[in-house]
Design a protein around this nucleic acid. Sequence first.
DNA 1: CCTTAATCCTGGAAGC
DNA 2: TGCTTCCAGGATTAAG
Length: 293
Amino acid sequence: MPELPEVETIRQGLAQAVIGRRVVRVTLKRPDFIREGSSRRSRIGAISPDDLLEGQTITRIERRGKQIAVIGSQDTALCLHLGMSGSLAAGPADALQPTPHTHIRWDLDENSAFQMTDPRRFGGVWAFTNLQELTATRWSTLGPDALTVTARQLQTALKTTKRAIKAALLDQTLLAGVGNIYADESLHRAQIHPQTPAHRLQTDPIKSLATNLRQILREAITAGGSSLRDHVMLNGAAGSFQFAHRVYGRGGLPCQRCGAELRKTLIAQRTTVWCATCQPKERTRKKRINHLT
DNA sequence: CCTTAATCCTGGAAGC
DNA sequence: TGCTTCCAGGATTAAG
């Protein structure tokens, strides 16, 4: 899935493309793509176009973690979650073609349109009567947004769990927006071993992690995100941050900082790549410091 | 608490 | 070329 930088790239593009435009018509090709509440299973019984912004002018586009909210002039808030393979596209209505997995499309005034496509359908659209209802339910369980998280907030979140820091970073209730790519990349930059129990991390490493995480997310947003399989910007152009990855997808290759062969293991069911030299376990790190002293 | 496995799906790549 | 298997940016749920 698009992680925070990819979703933020999409949010910015969407804001540019649709704010101030009126939704003329909503085409729902797959009604079961619309869901409700916080569960991904439950489905809205009867969906009316009104629930999906038809007739409203789009006023705001918000993001929390990996989710987007599209807000209309009658306060309707649609939460778009891209899942693993979801994407949005926007452009002139007559040039924007639905693809086989385009599940919903919004035609706007001024011959413009945007649509959501998701082959695997792990994503979805959640309809709320207003943003408050969304933040009070579906978004209420999310941790602080990773783009602006402070070291203090991160420390508060991390001390609540003994799980590996890699697993903790992926937990959206602790921190919202980080997925497998940016978890590995930020741990490498902060030189933290991915298996380190989260509650054992000291203040300094946490400060480093928070700083490096925010930094890398900002850099990735500037680059338009990482385009690996599905992510593209609203106009279809690819992001370029995949070329800046130092560990993700590079297991077995040399570390670009020290040259050691990057290790690859599974943590929390997710492929994890790290450098054993640059990201030593705490014990090793202490030993090395003692040795140097 | 914690971890693991299964589940929701499709498609691309790799292996034979 | 074609078939099979594995893997993937996510997140929830059940089971151990």
